[in-house]
Amino acid sequence: MRKTTFLAALTAIIGLAAGVALAHETGPHQGPVAEWGEEEYHVEVVPDTKGGTVSVYVYGSEDDLAKGKSKPIDSKTLTLSLKTTPPVTLKLEPKPAKDDPAGKSSVFVGKHDVFGKAAKLEGTVSGKVGTKPYSGDFKQK
């Protein structure tokens, strides 16, 4: 009996964990999400095929991501590296949201021809918050 109860509980925990992980493969803007650090930050990559641009939104914890609560960071640029043929590396400039404090931004933007066509993107977003470097992979489904 204990073995059956244990296995049922373990199956439920695994199912919940998988559900949590799957719940945040996309962010509030329906873009793929990369994790920075140990749940310190989450960044959402949102391409715009009409404008040929990309916006990267910065969130704090997974809970912040789920609530769509941005987290402005002290960073001059972010780097977006795409696994395309040929590979594309792009510097993203800050575009502070209206509520972001001076000197910080929760949104970073860039423009490149690769965003002008509908394609599933995959790559890495990296940057520094203050002096600490971060990097995380994303994959558009």
Rank of each mutant, 00 (worst) to 15 (best):
P32Y: 04
Q140L: 01
V45L: 03
G116F: 07
T11E: 09
G31K: 02
G110F: 04
G19T: 11
V56N: 00
G68L: 12
V125G: 01
A97V: 03
A18V: 13
P87Q: 11
G19I: 09
Y57D: 00
V20S: 09
G19F: 15
A12S: 14
Y57V: 02
T84W: 02
V129S: 05
A12L: 15
F108T: 06
M1K: 07
E38L: 14
G136W: 10
S126C: 02
F115E: 00
S126D: 04
D64Q: 11
D113I: 11
A119M: 00
S81P: 02
S135W: 05
S105R: 08
A18F: 13
G15L: 14
P133M: 07
K83R: 12
I14F: 15
Y59Q: 13
L92K: 02
T84F: 01
K71D: 14
L78C: 05
R2V: 08
P28L: 07
A119W: 00
H24I: 14
D64L: 08
P94S: 04
E122W: 01
A118P: 01
V107R: 08
G127L: 08
V56C: 02
W36T: 05
D74N: 14
K3N: 09
A8F: 15
V20P: 03
S55G: 11
K69S: 14
Y57W: 07
K67I: 08
T85K: 14
I14S: 08
V43F: 09
A66N: 09
L10I: 12
G130L: 08
S105M: 08
D74S: 14
P87G: 06
K98N: 09
V107Q: 06
G123S: 03
E40A: 13
P32K: 04
L78I: 12
H29P: 01
A97C: 03
D64N: 14
L10G: 06
E40G: 07
V88K: 10
K67Y: 12
S75H: 06
E44H: 03
S61I: 07
G110V: 03
K117P: 00
T26F: 06
G31V: 01
V33P: 01
K71R: 15
E40I: 10
Q30T: 10
T85E: 13
S105K: 07
K128A: 06
A97P: 04
A118M: 06
V33T: 02
K139G: 01
P133E: 09
K95F: 10
G19H: 10
V114M: 05
